[in-house]
Design a binder for these strands. Structure first.
Lengths: 216, 216
DNA sequence: TCCATATTGTTAATTTTTTGTCAAATCAGT
DNA sequence: ACTGATTTGACAAAAAATTAACAATATGGA
């Protein structure tokens, strides 16, 4: 039923989906059962028109004169995002950032399952993070031989990222969530990289603060 | 000299600035002294036209027939971003994520200076992160009375964020870098919030992985 | 059942963003 | 100093994204 129109969905629309999902989740938790695009628009700061247009990329989830059922829209968007998958995922780097990511993300609710953590620091190897034992990075090949790994999370220094990406590519891993302060670029077009640049976000904050002061 | 045109700069342009800064930093580190928009375009995956247009929002930094001086363009963009400031900043929350942020970000190079860390967990209070002693969150008012705080970083649970934001607003803090899985919304329009939603990024990765599989 | 109200899905208009083009300017070699 | 190759900055064109408008349809109460 959800197989509606499959023209390519634009990047801005895709980036708004998790936001819809988040707000609908909050409404659901509050026990709200129905909502109109107008009400959502007030809450989220998008226009009602945009919300309707975004949703219509994927199907017709609302009902004229009524609006949307919070629960079923929440589920639909979750499904569109693919959160009902359970992609097997490993984490590379068990430093502060790696641990924070491992502990804070509820991977299971986001379509992923964390099945291994690797580091090359002998101090960390053998320790436990979120019930997973940190393994020597040298054992990556062995591990990937035994387990089908769908995605890898990079919480390693910039200098190490590209090399490890190469190893993982050879092991069949094609999807990367990258925190390494470095734009992972891979020549193969079957690879998906989601780069997270916390520094960029911080610099944007700096820009906005600076401009604010200049204007006043 | 940099006071060129101050029509409002669009959000997409602003979000690309840190990226330029990053790539130019890498070129600088490699000892490259000059670069053309075309060469940058090959490296970064934007069109040359876009790069020139973006830069021209702020001034004329290039020279016809030559291109741009890597070093001076790097410095100009750093200045545009406001990285030569030193905004006094506090971190709220010294858990895994807070520690990771404190340790990984070179605030000094990004226009900020970390001057305090707060938590309400007695286990953490008194411990040291990056040479800063973690202080009781109850002492926030005292601290802000003694120190002018420009910005605050939120690494606290969703449930705590909004309340702490209110306290900080009353203490005169107007700028927030928010990791709390919650869109901080403040009614006052002198407030700047940069929300970081790691979950959103993860969900986008999930979407892209899912679509990839569907298409093939 | 009927009517006034609400709200969607869709198409059209508008706005914003990106890309293409080119004259003017600089550079490098002779 | 002259010439051909580059490359910018500016403007024009194209593409993309957002907003507006509205017919079609459902709701809820009389």
């Amino acid at each position: 039923m959800a197989m509606h129109k499959y023209e390519k969905i634009s990047v801005p629309v895709i980036r708004r989906l998790p936001r819809y999902y988040r707000f609908l989740g909050e409404l659901l938790a509050k026990g709200v059962t129905r909502i109109s695009s107008r009400q959502l628009s007030d809450k989220m700061g998008f226009t009602a028109s945009q919300i309707r247009q975004d949703l219509n990329c994927f199907g017709e989830f609302g009902q004229q004169g009524y609006g949307y059922s919070v629960e079923s829209l929440y589920n639909e968007i979750g499904h569109i995002l693919g959160l009902d998958h359970s992609y097997k995922t490993i984490l590379i780097g068990a430093g502060n950032l790696g641990k924070a990511v491992a502990v804070h993300m509820s991977f299971e609710k986001r379509g992923f399952q964390l099945i291994g953590i690797f580091d090359n620091d002998s101090q960390k190897i053998g320790s436990t993070v979120r019930d997973i034992v940190v393994t020597d990075l040298d054992d990556l090949e062995t591990f990937c031989g035994k387990n089908k790994v769908d995605a890898a999370i990079f919480c390693v220094p910039k200098s190490a990222a590209q090399k490890i990406a190469g190893r993982l590519y050879n092991l069949g891993v094609r999807n990367y969530w990258n925190f390494s302060h470095y734009d992972l670029t891979v020549d193969y077009d079957d690879v998906i990289v989601e780069n997270v640049h916390l520094n960029d976000s911080l610099m944007v904050l700096c820009y906005r603060m600076t401009k604010e002061y200049e204007e006043t």
